[in-house]
Design a binder for these strands. Structure first.
Lengths: 102, 102
DNA sequence: CTATAATATCAATACTCATTGATATTAATT
DNA sequence: AATTAATATCAATGAGTATTGATATTATAG
């Protein structure tokens, strides 16, 4: 069965969702964060020190990633440990293939 | 061998390129255009009429896609036929997997 | 209880970029 | 040559958003 965009409501919705997802990860610092979290969960201070970026900027980007449920967080003392939501990422990655692969 | 981001120059460059690519396709109307061109090559007037968007807006987005070499174009009389550069798209799609798949 | 470390929030600024309206260019048709 | 169709370009506007500086919150340590 052929994937059709821009026609029925289902495919319109999928396209809008895909664009939303892409906007989230199409930011260099957020992509760096995703990349960093790929192998280890990390606290905020690890991330901003590693990336050499202001703490509040990293917090801001983490919030955007979290709101979109691409990462999740748990408290550990004064630290907050962030981890990647790989399932969600893969789900969207797969969605994307509709627009790219035949 | 493990894919490492943010460390060596090669992976930094790949990440920057990936983010650039994502910015290009992370726009709903451009994603629609890509989707439309997936099955048929189309002239500009087909695209803007199909998507119900202003002609100059579509031309603008096509230029962005073309500058990034995601589409190419050929003249046919007064019309300009655009087609998808599937190879390039797939190349970037594959690059993305570094950040998403394990 | 106070001080410190880690994180989040808020307001202001700066910047990017999608969109629009008007106009230019190019090719075909009469 | 003049008109029309198709496309591209340009300047201006507006919306969204990344970044920064300052401050608030929360939890631990002394």
């Amino acid at each position: 069965m052929e994937f059709s965009c821009c026609k029925n409501n289902q495919s319109k919705k999928e396209l809008a969702q895909s664009a939303e997802f892409l906007k989230i990860i199409a930011e260099e610092n957020r992509l760096k964060i995703i990349c960093l979290l790929k192998h280890h969960d990390r606290c905020v201070c690890d991330i901003w020190q590693y990336l050499d970026l202001p703490q509040n900027l990293i917090s801001h980007h983490l919030k955007i990633l979290k709101d979109f449920e691409l990462v999740s967080s748990k408290k550990q003392g004064t630290k907050v440990i962030y981890s990647l939501n790989s399932k969600k990422l893969k789900k969207y990655y797969l969605l994307l293939s509709h627009y790219i692969n035949n």
